[in-house]
Design a protein around this nucleic acid. Sequence first.
DNA 1: CCAAAACTTTTTACGCTGTATAGAGTGAGG
DNA 2: CCTCACTCTATACAGCGTAAAAAGTTTTGG
Lengths: 261, 261
Amino acid sequence: MTSVYGGSGDPKRGMELLWGTREQPKRGPKPKLTVPRIAAVAVELADAEGIGSLSMRKVAARLGVTAMSLYSYVPAKGELIDVMIDTVLGELPSGEHDGDWRSRLASVARQNWELHLRHPWLMQLASSRPVLGPNLIARYDYELRAVDGVGLSDVEMDLVVGLVANYVHGAVRGAVEVAEGEQRTGKSDEDWWREHEPLLAKVFDDDRYPVAARVGVAAGTEYGAAIDPVRAFEFGLGRVLDGVAVLVERDRGQAADAGSL
Amino acid sequence: MTSVYGGSGDPKRGMELLWGTREQPKRGPKPKLTVPRIAAVAVELADAEGIGSLSMRKVAARLGVTAMSLYSYVPAKGELIDVMIDTVLGELPSGEHDGDWRSRLASVARQNWELHLRHPWLMQLASSRPVLGPNLIARYDYELRAVDGVGLSDVEMDLVVGLVANYVHGAVRGAVEVAEGEQRTGKSDEDWWREHEPLLAKVFDDDRYPVAARVGVAAGTEYGAAIDPVRAFEFGLGRVLDGVAVLVERDRGQAADAGSL
DNA sequence: CCAAAACTTTTTACGCTGTATAGAGTGAGG
DNA sequence: CCTCACTCTATACAGCGTAAAAAGTTTTGG
């Protein structure tokens, strides 16, 4: 008899998984595995070979078990990935903050940046539903506290934190591309750039696309490569924080508090 | 679920595909298909069912041909996806601009936003290498022209355009999630939010996560849902443009300065 | 004009995927 | 003890990308 909500459906079961609120069974053989152990192995595999080549069979093999055995811990692969996501979110700080709001927010951004570099497969789960696991909530609280008490409204706080998260997510894309490209081809981005220079010269047609040609060449020679993801990230982060600062100062003036910054 | 395409071998063949610089064969039967036609059908399928369920067999079937037949037009699925990407980039404007730099850059962002909503599968190709097709170059030129002549250095222009692209990419994620969630479950995000309110109340534990609880509830009631992607996008775009404005004014006051943050 | 060469298309096949289903093994409660 | 609840294994299926081989189609050279 098959459940109507097979596969990625049942949110209650997913919540039990993420929050570990499942009463352990009283009868039957002792389980050989645990959900956190399965998730840890899956994360290891995804880090090493990419989420695209992560399969239930490989995870099971690494655990000395058959593929189907995993299905008594996890309803389907989708839920396993949900647990993987919340697992790696647990690597992020969620305690007390230091410094002013700007340095706090910069730290938040850099922590998220590094997490995505450690686990590039996070990028590719862009269009799945959010997970709402315990580590996500803890982290959300932490990120909000970075801008708590600086004069923003609650909704503005949520929007600012979302803005930083969104920006980091977009920016890390370039870095992951470069890193995976280098891993795949064994060539550095710089080598690739030099090797394909003649082809790029034809692509950046000076007559049809004068601005692209001028700027593309200027940027390419400056970076020594097609893109410099770290520089792009730090540059964009600076602009984003400048934009938030404008908002903070505006709100502060509105609250008749002539503080400095 | 996720599509990772790797291994794509010959970059020269890929370039020929994208730029259409392949001399057509003199002997043999007339080809029934063309690469643009194949790509158009593939885009249609990906729009309708997602990139995860796009297969060579389905594309071929839609064209009245067997799967293997496609391999005389395209070396592999990865290259087909490259062509798909450049194809949809062709939907974007690339002509003359109106208005000042701020409204131009806002238009650029909104155009990219809408493109991603039309073709959500673009999101999931986050970690593939860039495509360098003709439409990408034309669009890059167009976006650069939005901020040409406002006093930024060439490298700064590249960084600003990259910042906006990165931000949009990150922001569109939430919108795609909501849209796909609604399509998959048949329920609006608002319904989902209301239905799971008791569970969310337990998740937002007021003692452990006071800030998350306060802000999460405030944001949720304000949006009438877990997130309001359009509002988040417009808010973040405003802040990003404010941050760019700070840079523009700084450069304007000071002839040349590449420093940031 | 005909055969060879060049090209497209189909057929078949292989190893891989997620997971449905059924059965075997294991431990506690009646 | 048996029985129930549970874990784990074995088997199977449909679908995937694509390699290899063969068949069909058109142009070219002799």
